[in-house]
Design a protein around this nucleic acid. Structure first.
Length: 568
DNA sequence: GCCGTTTTCGGCCCGACTGTTTTCAGTCG
């Protein structure tokens, strides 16, 4: 995808400019362009053809020309120029905590440092500490930064972060001095991975609350324990930060610490244009605080409705809010069923009836049982005989269950040549068919998916990218082509709610929405507990601006079945 | 390098923190 390639190049240019000590605002401009391209819900190639590159925020004449240069020649002179004399991994070292561009450049120019090994050497022999503006403590901090970098603490999955935060919050609430508690940061925005967990607290005697916090039973290490901020490490190297803020600033602090940074910068500009100042302490006109107690109040004084945290990425939500055109994003109560799960018939742990009863407790109206097809041997995939047995069982249970319907589904494998693991006459007897790739991740995936979508019985393409977050890249696939085919054939694309998958991701979901593609959210549960993953799917859908009408499992079972491709 | 309901030039978010200095540079969020 050219979007990602260009984003990477512009980020690299920004790194290099920073390293060379260029004007910081040029650096910011390149970073902004990189972010916009990275999160773009359209193919940059298409935008270029429509001559609309310059309509993108942060992309002006110079960067537009660089994009076109790259798209037409496959090269970018500026990129090559600024990175020419810099060894490949030197710029990677900017990710080391406490080591910024100034220090790295100085170490490179005066001491010839080009790698982490070099850096360690000049730390150990004392040469780094002798540079101007450097001293023992700074060097010590850089040393700690290297240790952290080398342990390369991966970002947490949203599921682990959510669980950890909930445990800590529950513990904090047991203290009488604690008045209000809220998660903040990327966790509150439900980003798919989380760095540190941020929690905000108001209450009396901040110092005592922090002391109480650092005695949390799961604490491995205490990093800091001041009057307003405490920081601990719990199991799995997870860092939890707690901040105490005065009640009068709680809303402003919550807004500020929820971010994203890009969203905050945009808001501050609006405050400034209105003659106000926005900070984590409140909204001020001169020295007088005019808002900040509640988050809603902060937005209101900027003439904006409250923007849901999931949308706060500066991807157009502020303009939408200003024009009163925020989407009515999906809520848990809109979901009427779960469209992917596995029973004991293939690789699931629970019986069909158990899944149904658990789903009914979640107030669903239906579920789709999607066990694997025969080629998925590793998952005990169903052959025809067992599939038919499953259908009979579903019919029997359906007669027993009131106001609930188990739909007959299948997760049918897309084979090496794009054909499906079951013939059409079998698929035709399923209520809903999911098709997915489970083998040959690098083998003509785009064509195989497109062939599968030409089949009138394929309703949904499951986990369309095949990625496993922080574990596996996913298929070699041209998602733009897949989405175009889905739009053309009326095939639904899945948002897999399993927290290690979450594909389509937020940006893809928004793109799909814009292309008129319907999304199906399925948990891919392999047990009754797995049904609770729906919240991660909903959160990702919200981040992708999806409204109930964009998501097929907000429909009644009648509408759902009526909208299948084979009926059109 | 981008951008304009004050501006086509002159701004660009801004405060906290730390460590190095003796008034400020660098890093971070």
């Amino acid at each position: 995808m050219k979007n990602k390639e260009l984003a990477h190049m512009f980020n690299r240019i920004a790194d290099a400019l920073e390293f060379h000590g260029e004007n910081v605002f040029r650096v910011i401009a390149y970073r902004k362009a990189a972010r916009v391209l990275d999160e773009l819900s359209e193919d940059v190639v298409v935008l270029h053809k429509k001559n609309e590159l310059e309509s993108l925020p942060g992309i002006g004449r110079a960067i537009k020309e660089k994009i076109i240069e790259y798209l037409t020649t496959g090269k970018m002179k500026k990129y090559e120029e600024v990175t020419r004399e810099l060894p490949g991994d030197l710029l990677d070292m900017l990710d080391i905590q406490n080591l910024g561009p100034k220090t790295l450049a100085l170490a490179h120019k005066t001491l010839g440092v080009v790698s982490i090994e070099d850096l360690k050497k000049v730390i150990n022999d004392g040469r780094l500490a002798k540079l101007p503006q450097m001293g023992e403590k700074k060097v010590e901090n850089i040393k700690k930064g290297i240790e952290l970098y080398e342990r390369s603490r991966e970002r947490l999955s949203i599921a682990l972060a959510e669980k950890t935060a909930n445990d800590v919050i529950k513990y904090l609430k047991q203290d009488k001095r604690v008045k209000a508690v809220s998660p903040a940061g990327s966790l509150r925005r439900w980003q798919e991975t989380i760095g540190d967990i941020d929690i905000l607290v108001t209450g009396s005697k901040g110092q005592d609350i922090i002391k109480y916090f650092t005695r949390y039973p799961g604490t491995d290490r205490v990093l800091a324990a001041g009057a307003t901020k405490g920081s601990i490490i719990v199991a799995n190297d997870v860092q939890v930060d707690v901040r105490i803020v005065p009640a009068a600033s709680f809303g402003a602090a919550l807004q500020y610490f929820t971010g994203s940074r890009a969203h905050n910068i945009h808001l501050r500009n609006i405050a400034k244009a209105k003659g106000m100042k926005l900070s984590e302490y409140g909204v001020f006109r001169g020295t007088r605080q005019v808002a900040g107690k509640t988050e809603q109040g902060v937005y209101k004084i900027l003439s904006l409705p409250l923007i849901p945290p999931e949308l706060r990425e500066d991807r157009g939500e502020i303009d939408a809010a200003r024009m009163n055109r925020l989407p009515r994003i999906v809520e848990p109560g809109d979901i009427k069923g779960d469209l992917q799960m596995h029973s004991t018939y293939s690789d699931g742990a629970d019986e069909i009836e158990d899944l149904a009863r658990a789903a009914r407790k979640l107030r669903y109206h239906y579920i789709l049982i999607t066990d694997h097809s025969r080629s998925a041997r590793y998952a005990h995939g169903l052959d025809l005989k067992r599939l038919k047995k499953q259908w009979r069982e579903i019919e029997t249970i359906n007669k027993r269950l009131k106001r609930f319907r188990i739909l007959k589904g299948i997760e049918v494998d897309i084979l090496g040549d794009g054909s499906l693991d079951f013939p059409d006459r079998i698929l035709n007897q399923c209520d809903i068919v999911l098709a997915s790739i489970h083998q040959g991740f690098k083998n003509r995936v785009t064509e195989r998916m497109c062939t599968a979508m030409d089949n009138p019985y394929v309703d949904i393409i499951a986990h369309p990218t095949g990625r496993l977050i922080s574990q596996r890249e996913g298929y070699v696939v041209d998602l733009w082509k897949v989405m175009a085919k889905a739009a053309e054939t009326g095939t639904w694309l899945e948002l897999n709610a399993f927290p290690d998958r979450l594909d389509l991701n937020d940006v893809n979901c928004k793109a799909a929405k814009d292309m008129g593609i319907k999304i199906s959210i399925g948990t891919d549960a392999h047990s009754t507990e797995g049904l609770s993953w729906m919240k991660f799917g909903i959160a990702t859908a919200r981040r992708g601006w999806l409204e109930p009408q964009n998501i097929v499992n907000t429909y009644s079972v009648e509408k759902l079945l009526k909208l299948r491709k084979r009926r059109q």
